[in-house]
Simulated scan of single mutants.
Amino acid sequence: MSAHVAGRLRELFLAPDAAAPVRRVAERAVPATVGVLGPAREGEVAAVALAVAVARGRRARCAVVCRWDGACPEAPRAALALATRGARRLAERLDRRGLPASARGRVVTVALPPEPAAARAAIERTHAAIDDLPLVVLVAGPRPPALDAVLAALDRLVVVPAPDAPSGLSELAATAAARLGRGVARLDLPDTALARLVAITGRSVSPRLRAAAAAALGGGDDA
Rank of each mutant, 00 (worst) to 15 (best):
L94M: 07
A111C: 02
E115N: 05
L135M: 08
E124Q: 09
L133Q: 07
L147S: 09
A103H: 01
P116M: 07
S102I: 12
L157I: 03
P163K: 05
R106P: 00
P144R: 01
I130W: 02
L157E: 03
E92S: 13
D155P: 01
A128M: 04
D131N: 08
V110W: 04
D131P: 11
A152P: 06
P113W: 07
G98F: 01
A153G: 15
L157C: 03
I123L: 02
D95E: 14
P100Y: 02
A153P: 04
P113Y: 02
L154Y: 07
A165K: 05
A122Q: 13
V110K: 07
V160A: 11
P161I: 11
A140H: 14
I123C: 00
D131Q: 13
A122P: 12
S167G: 08
D164M: 12
H127L: 04
V159E: 13
T126F: 03
V110D: 08
R120N: 04
V136E: 04
D131H: 14
P163M: 12
V110T: 09
A146R: 11
A128L: 03
A91E: 11
V158I: 14
P145W: 11
L138D: 05
D164R: 14
L147Q: 05
T126S: 01
A118T: 04
A118C: 07
V159M: 14
R104G: 02
L151V: 09
R93E: 11
A128G: 15
H127G: 05
S167D: 11
V159S: 14
L133V: 04
D148K: 00
D95S: 15
V158T: 14
T109C: 09
A140L: 15
D131F: 12
A91G: 14
G98W: 08
R156L: 02
D132R: 15
A153K: 06
